[in-house]
Structures are given as structure tokens and as C-alpha cells.
Design a protein around this nucleic acid. Structure first.
Lengths: 190, 190
DNA sequence: CTTTTAACTGAATAATTATTCATTTAATTT
DNA sequence: AAATTAAATGAATAATTATTCAGTTAAAAG
């Protein structure tokens, strides 16, 4: 028997992300995805039951892989600010390096394809971040505000940094990154 | 002759915004829009040439009306911080009160319906804000950073405040608003 | 090297959705 | 109050897009 070319799944994912970035979730068809991935439309259906399954699987892959990079190199033993900085930087860099993915996740959040459960799974992935913020409050290093706002503040500004970096085609130097981190830090610090 | 019911256009707009919030731009059909607006599908085509025209017209209306509220009560003669606070509050409140609209604009930004020119028009609407930021830098009240980042910081965090307010069904009290403003202000201040 | 089996193809079909149009309704004019 | 005209309707049609499937190809097993 002929085995599946498992790499093909990645090609399909890549194609979908590229097309969604360019045309939105509303602007893609299975034919476009197949063509962009360099395969026949029928082949798509060997790997995915239907369009909804493709979108859901990709959403799952995107959230898992991005969440895992968010906390790479993060050591909870380190001082609070070091940990916060590590995660902040990880998220910014992931959002910029995988901008397609960021837009895809954003669009999926308001789409009929993704169910509440998957959305909640995504929210859960920020768990370690929530704990870090609680710790920062306990250590009196950051403002004593409801965590939801501290997180919104951090994530919101990061999202917008990524968008502008890509839209205006800016090269993110260490200097720019540090200056942006400073904005966030000065905001949350006690 | 029978005159057009000009209010119908607003019904169509409202219906579209509600449906896009619930299902995304990819999840709406002209039949759904008509039904939600309480009219026949054919009637939609009396008011809009086609789907693309509807989306474009709505995008235009949304950007214009939201931009105008952003700068209401804003008096450039007032001290910098007052002006900044006014605009900050205007944007947050608009985003929350017209959450549909915010999601629609966000989704349109990555869709084949909206052309580059319309996107640029939207960017231009923040012009008064850019000027205010320049002024803040001149007066040495805020950090001397490229305006693109200061604006990203402000807008990004506002967007996320609005999303969480709606998703978690939070009542935005003056206290919460002020605490969130403080986060932003502490971030940008010199 | 033949057989087997599953991947792969892309045109054909099914399903969905945009758009039209013959007909009906209701405001205005005369 | 009859005539006129454009709005409104919604089923019918056109266009698009998802999905299938009969036929083809290529890897693995024997």
C-alpha cells in the first residue's frame, strides 16, 4: 500500500493560513486551499472529512503550538520580572513570526466553525500566565487589579504591536522590543 | 410612487452587524441578512447592488461614525492629559457599546471585500490622535517613542478591554475604567 | 516482478448561496 | 378614486463552492 505523505497535512495548513491572511476566513474555498497546497481537491478530503474539520484541526494545531512557545524558556523559579519579560517576548515574537496564525485564530473566534469548547481550550492555555500575574500581585510588584484587566492590557498591546509590525513592514529590533516592553511594564508595575 | 423606507437601510446594517458578530463575515448569507432585517431577499438588492456593495457601504458607515465619536468632546485647547483621557474613554465606550461594529471592522480588515483605499481611509481617521501624541512628546509628558508604538499600545489595550468586557459580560464601572486608564497612562507617561 | 492496497486526481455532482424577475402592494399624483 | 410608479415579495434561476467518485498512480508486500 501507498503510505500517506504526512508532510502534506502541513502543506494544507500552511496554504490555509496564507489564504486566510490574504482573504479572510470568508474568502477561502477548498479549491483554493488545494491549489495553494499543490494537491487535488479530492486529496484534501482524504486528510480532512470536510471544511469544518480542516478549520477545527488547524485551529487546534495553531492554539497548541503557539501556546507552547509562549512558555518556552519560562522558569517559574526566576524572579517575577524575568519571567514576565520572557513570556511577553515569546508572545510578541510568535505573533510576528506566525502572523498568519494570529489572524486565523482571531477570525476563528467569530466564526461558526469553532465551538465554545475549543474557544475555552484556548483561554485555558494562558493559565500559567494567570498564575504569574497572581504571583506578581502577591509580591506587590504589579498593580492590585483584577487579573482579567492586567492580561487584557498585556495581550491587547502585544496584538497591536504584531499587526503594525507586519502592516508597516517594520523590522523589530531589540531596541524597539525593549521600548515596547517598557511601556507594558510601566503600565502594570505597582 | 412609493418612496423608499430609508430606515430599512439601518435595519439591514444592524442585521448584518449582529450576524457578523455571531457568525463572522464567512458565516453570513444574503438570505440570513434579509431574514434578520425582516425583509425579503429581493428587497436587499433594491438598497444594495450586491453583497460586496453592502459590506463596503457598512464598512464606510461604521468607520465614519465610530471615528466621529472618538473625538467628540475633545478640545485641543485643553491640557494634554485631559484630551488624551477624553479620547481614550470615547474609544473604549464606543468599542463596548458598538461591539458588533468593532468585530465587523476587524474582520473586514482581512477580507476580499474591502480595498486598500478604504483601509487607508480608516487609518487616516486617527489623524487627530497622532497629532495629540506628537504634542504630548513635545511637552515631554509622554515617552519619546515612535508614535506608531504609542498608538499601538493604546489601541491594542482598548480593543482587548472591549473584548473581555463583552465576552465575560462585565459591567464597566467608572472605577474599572479609571483603573484601566491608569494602566495606559502609566505606560506612556515620560 | 506481480499483486495488492491505499493515495491521488480532477471532472462530475450535490449543496449552498447570490441574484433576478414576474407579480403584488402601497404610496403619491392627478 | 383611478392611474401611476416604485417598493416589496419570495420562488425561480444562476453562480459558486463543497464534496464525491470512477479511474489512475505508486509504494509496499509477497
Amino acid at each position: 500500500m501507498k503510505p500517506r505523505d504526512e508532510n502534506k497535512i502541513n502543506e494544507i495548513y500552511k496554504a490555509t493560513l496564507n489564504l486566510v491572511k490574504a482573504n479572510g476566513l470568508s474568502g477561502i474555498t477548498m479549491q483554493m486551499v488545494a491549489k495553494e497546497a499543490g494537491i487535488a481537491t479530492g486529496t484534501l478530503y482524504i486528510y480532512f472529512k470536510n471544511k469544518e474539520a480542516l478549520i477545527n484541526a488547524l485551529f487546534d494545531v495553531c492554539t497548541r503550538s503557539s501556546a507552547s512557545t509562549f512558555f518556552s524558556n519560562y522558569d517559574p523559579e526566576q524572579p517575577f520580572k524575568i519571567g514576565f519579560h520572557t513570556i511577553w517576548l515569546n508572545i510578541v515574537q510568535r505573533r510576528v513570526a506566525h502572523f498568519n496564525e494570529s489572524i486565523f485564530i482571531e477570525q476563528c473566534f467569530h466564526s461558526p466553525f469553532i465551538d465554545e469548547e475549543s474557544k475555552n481550550r484556548l483561554r485555558k492555555m494562558f493559565e500559567p500566565m494567570l498564575q504569574l500575574i497572581e504571583r506578581g500581585k502577591t509580591e506587590r510588584l504589579i498593580k492590585n487589579m483584577d487579573t482579567v484587566w492586567l492580561l487584557a492590557f498585556m495581550i491587547g498591546s502585544i496584538n497591536e504591536i504584531a499587526k503594525r509590525t507586519i502592516y508597516y513592514n517594520i523590522k523589530l529590533t531589540d531596541e524597539i522590543l525593549e521600548a515596547n516592553f517598557q511601556l507594558c511594564w510601566d503600565g502594570i508595575k505597582a
